[in-house]
C-alpha cells in the first residue's frame, strides 16, 4: 500500500540527508469512494416531484342561485372519458365538450343527437395549437392576447418578472373581459392522468374560473348518443 522509496541516486555526499519519496497507493480508496457514489446515485432522488394545487368547494349545501352565477355564453363543459386496453392500461383519453346549455333532440326518453363535440389532449406542434387546447385558447382569446402583450414587454425587459406576474393575474381576473367558465366533469372511468391534463390546460390557457363537477343524467344521455362514445365502449362488459 504505502511504500517509502529511497532515491537511488548514484553517489552520495556524505552527511547529506537521504531523500525519501512516499508513495501511498490510493486505488482501494478510489474503489471505495466509487462504490459509495454509486450507492448514493442509485438511492437518491435528485428531481423533486412537482405539485399542482387544487381547491374544491365544500360539501355543504350551497344555495342553488349562487351556483348558477356563470353566464351561459361563457360556460364550457368538458366531460372526460378514458378507454383501457385488456391489461387495464390507459388506451386513450377523450374529451366530450359543449358550450353553454347543451342542445339535444329526444326520441321518447332517449337522447338521439346533441350539440356535444369530441376532442383530445394533443398539445401543440410548434406554434400550432391542437385538440382541446385550441378550443379553450379561442374561448379565452381576450385574456390570452393581453397576457401575451405583457409577456412581450417582459421579454423586452421593460418590466420585471414580478410586474409581469402581477399584470397577468390582474388580466386573468378582469371581469370586463369575456372569460370562459370551465366545468370539468370526469366520468367514473376517467383516468387520473386525464383529470390532471384537463387542469393543466386551465393553467396553460390562463383560465381562472374552473370547477370539477359530476356528470348529470343529461350529460350521460348525450354521451350515449355520441357515435364516438358508442364506438369506444363497444367492447365493454356490461
Amino acid at each position: 500500500m504505502a511504500q517509502i522509496e529511497q532515491s537511488s541516486g548514484g553517489k552520495k555526499k556524505k552527511g547529506a540527508q537521504k531523500k525519501m519519496a512516499i508513495h501511498v497507493d490510493f486505488t482501494p480508496m478510489v474503489d471505495m469512494n466509487m462504490l459509495l457514489i454509486t450507492f448514493f446515485m442509485l438511492c437518491t432522488t435528485m428531481i423533486k416531484s412537482q405539485t399542482l394545487s387544487i381547491s374544491l368547494p365544500t360539501n355543504e349545501k350551497v344555495e342553488q342561485k349562487d351556483l348558477q352565477k356563470a353566464k351561459e355564453s361563457e360556460a364550457v363543459t368538458l366531460i372526460l372519458d378514458t378507454t383501457y386496453d385488456d391489461k387495464g392500461a390507459v388506451k386513450d383519453n377523450v374529451i366530450y365538450y359543449y358550450f353553454g346549455q347543451p342542445l339535444y333532440e329526444k326520441n321518447g326518453d332517449k337522447i338521439t343527437s346533441s350539440s356535444m363535440l369530441v376532442s383530445k389532449f394533443e398539445g401543440n406542434t410548434g406554434k400550432e395549437l391542437n385538440g382541446i387546447r385550441k378550443i379553450l385558447h379561442n374561448r379565452n382569446k381576450d385574456v390570452l392576447d393581453q397576457v401575451e402583450a405583457e409577456k412581450e414587454k417582459w421579454r423586452n425587459k421593460q418590466i420585471t418578472e414580478e410586474q409581469f406576474q402581477e399584470a397577468a393575474k390582474k388580466i386573468r381576473n378582469n371581469s370586463e373581459l369575456t372569460r370562459p367558465v370551465v366545468i370539468i366533469k370526469p366520468l367514473a372511468d376517467a383516468s387520473w392522468e386525464s383529470v390532471i391534463a384537463a387542469l393543466d390546460e386551465m393553467q396553460i390557457n390562463q383560465i381562472s374560473r374552473y370547477q370539477i363537477g359530476i356528470p348529470s343524467p343529461e350529460d350521460i344521455g348525450m354521451l350515449e348518443a355520441m357515435p364516438e362514445y358508442q364506438k369506444a365502449h363497444a367492447g365493454d362488459k356490461k
Partner: peptide, 10 residues
Amino acid sequence: TPSSVSEIKV
C-alpha cells in the same frame, strides 16, 4: 404520477 406544467416543488 401524471405530468403537468406546474413548477411548484413538493
